[in-house]
Simulated scan of single mutants.
Amino acid sequence: MPRKLIKVTPSRVATWLDCPRRYRMAYVDRPTPPRGGAFAHSTLGAVVHNALRAFFDLPVRRRTPEAAHALVGQHWKDDGFAGPGQAATYRELAAGWVADYVGEIDVTDDPIGLERWVSAPIGSIVAEGRVDRIDERDGELVIVDYKTGRSALTTDDARASQALALYVLAARRTLRRPCTRVELHHLPSGTVAAWEHTEESLTRHRTRAEEAAEEFTLATDTLNAGGDQDVLFPPRVGRQCSWCDFRRSCPEGQAAGPAAEPWALLARADEVADEVKG
């Protein structure tokens, strides 16, 4: 019998590599253990993504910085922030980032995809996921990923991103067009980190994803056959335990350090400005 292909999303692979126990709780355990509350940086990222999607859904004549600014307010949520005052500060910061961003790019071209789901068999896996934006430039697809984290990003970040590489592989099979370029658009700093993949670099990313898929599939199958969950899905402790969704269900994670405040990972405007100047 032909071997069944394993469905792989970037988040699934990243979770396995980050912490096998967290992978088990997120993807294997049923019912899923209770998750922690919302984090402000996640709320902020979701708002910016939703506002930009809505922006590019507008007719071209209405794609103005003022419209982008207003869309952040329309999509805003206060989840995870310290209070209304902090939430209002970041609402205005985010609105300014988005307005400045659309003011610097060509908004007259309609993207090929917005929050587009792509999926395609690649080797021993089915690579799939939701891409923030897919542009077409000079007959080739470009994968665009929005970022709102604390630090500006580099070419090395774009080159090393397995998520972007998997999106390239899936998008060019799904949409049947050439695709090698990936871009990380960091809105707080207004910078773009880009990389042109080669077939060799894409193969390396695909191979690592295949290896991870084989590992978590074997661990899951062995668990279902009666294996020890703590041996098959050990915790991998570190500073990430401070903001793990499943911290309350993981004694090792709790012992690794204190829980982070829900707003601890927010990008601060002064930090971003200093980093760009440096």
Score class of each variant (00 low, 15 high):
Trp16Ile: 03
Asp18Arg: 11
Cys19Glu: 06
Arg22Trp: 02
Asp29Lys: 01
Thr32His: 09
Arg35Gly: 00
Gly37His: 05
Phe39His: 11
Ala40Asn: 03
Ala40Ser: 10
Leu44Ile: 04
Leu44Phe: 12
Leu44Lys: 11
Leu44Asn: 11
Val48Phe: 08
His49Gln: 14
Ala51Tyr: 12
Ala51Val: 06
Phe56Ala: 00
Leu58Gln: 10
Arg61Ser: 02
Arg61Met: 04
Arg63Leu: 02
Pro65Arg: 15
Ala67Tyr: 13
Ala68Lys: 04
Val72Ile: 15
Gly73Leu: 00
Gly73Thr: 00
His75Pro: 02
Asp79Ser: 08
Ala82Thr: 15
Thr89Gly: 13
Thr89Ile: 13
Ala95Glu: 06
Trp97Ala: 06
Tyr101His: 14
Thr108Gln: 09
Asp110Cys: 01
Arg116His: 13
Trp117Lys: 01
Trp117Ser: 02
Val118Tyr: 00
Val118Ile: 08
Ala120Leu: 10
Pro121Cys: 07
Ile125Ala: 02
Ile125Gln: 07
Arg130Trp: 04
Asp132Pro: 03
Arg133Asn: 02
Glu136Arg: 15
Arg137Tyr: 05
Val142Phe: 07
Val144Leu: 14
Val144Ala: 03
Tyr146Ser: 09
Tyr146Trp: 15
Gly149Ala: 14
Leu153Ala: 07
Leu153Lys: 14
Thr154Ile: 12
Ala158Met: 12
Gln162Gly: 15
Ala163Trp: 00
Ala163Cys: 08
Ala171Ile: 13
Arg173Cys: 09
Arg176Tyr: 00
Pro178Gly: 13
Glu183Cys: 15
Leu184Asn: 08
His186Gly: 07
Ala194Phe: 03
Glu196Trp: 13
His197Met: 07
Ser201Met: 00
Leu202Phe: 11
His205Lys: 01
Ala209Trp: 12
Ala213Leu: 05
Glu215Phe: 01
Leu218Gly: 08
Ala219Leu: 10
Ala219Glu: 09
Thr222Phe: 08
Ala225Cys: 11
Gly226Thr: 11
Gly227Leu: 07
Asp228Asn: 08
Asp230Leu: 05
Leu232Gly: 05
Leu232Gln: 09
Leu232Ala: 01
Arg236Glu: 14
Gln240Phe: 02
Trp243His: 14
Phe246Thr: 03
Phe246Pro: 09
Phe246Tyr: 15
Ser249Glu: 07
Pro251Val: 00
Pro251Gln: 03
Gly253Val: 01
Trp263Gln: 09
Trp263Glu: 11
Trp263Cys: 02
Ala267Arg: 07
Glu271Leu: 05
Val272Met: 08
Gly278Leu: 14
Gly278Arg: 15
